[in-house]
Amino acid sequence: MGDSKTILNDCLYFTANALARVITRMAEEEFRKTGLSPSHAFLMMLVNDNPGIGQKELCEHLQLAPSTVTRFVDAMANKGFLSRQSEGKASRVFPTPTGEDLHQPIMDAWKGLHERYSRVLGRKEGDGLTVMIDAAYDKLNKAG
């Protein structure tokens, strides 16, 4: 089995997914304090920081498909955290006062997540890894 482990660990697909599972578990634990999933929390963070943001911009920032972002916005609107205003074909998303109240708990969870993986990886190493992964995503995404 020694060779199989090496083969798997030398595979970007395998190692990226393994890392995603570990960091997702950590994020879910940290963001659970907000009552939101990490994805919903990041959506709220963007809307709170950019009231009136368009769904297209949300898609770009979250790196998600329009249908996924629409589903997230619908869920958060149904919970009373967001509202939509239509401008022709465009839809603008705004936080409600209840959604604005989530700002600090979300920021605390985000900080907690960063501190948690920084304790394990080291702050400099964790931040460097984040930059490298983002750059790899951009290159691979553009290459199609």
Rank of each mutant, 00 (worst) to 15 (best):
E28L: 05
E28Y: 00
E28P: 02
E29W: 04
E30F: 01
F31T: 01
R32I: 00
K33F: 08
L36N: 06
S37N: 02
S37V: 01
P38C: 12
S39K: 06
A41E: 07
L43W: 03
M44P: 02
M44F: 04
M44E: 06
L46C: 11
V47L: 08
V47K: 02
V47M: 09
N48F: 09
D49P: 12
D49S: 11
D49K: 15
D49A: 13
D49N: 10
N50K: 08
N50Q: 09
P51M: 13
I53D: 09
Q55G: 08
K56F: 08
L58M: 11
H61Q: 14
L62R: 10
Q63F: 10
A65Y: 11
A65W: 09
T68P: 06
T68L: 12
V69E: 01
V69G: 00
F72T: 01
F72C: 01
F72V: 00
V73E: 03
V73N: 02
D74K: 04
A75V: 09
A75K: 12
M76V: 12
M76Q: 13
A77F: 03
A77V: 10
K79Q: 15
K79I: 00
G80L: 10
L82E: 09
L82W: 01
R84V: 12
Q85D: 12
E87C: 07
E87N: 14
G88N: 13
K89E: 12
K89V: 11
K89Q: 12
S91T: 15
R92K: 15
V93G: 13
V93M: 06
F94I: 01
P95I: 07
P95M: 07
T96L: 07
T96N: 03
T96R: 05
P97G: 10
P97H: 04
G99K: 06
G99F: 04
D101E: 15
D101M: 08
L102V: 03
Q104C: 03
Q104W: 03
P105I: 01
I106C: 02
M107C: 02
D108H: 07
D108A: 08
D108F: 04
A109E: 06
A109V: 06
A109L: 07
W110H: 05
W110C: 01
K111E: 15
L113T: 05
L113S: 07
H114L: 14
E115C: 03
Y117M: 07
Y117A: 00
S118N: 10
S118F: 09
V120S: 02
V120G: 00
V120F: 04
V120T: 07
L121K: 04
L121R: 02
L121S: 08
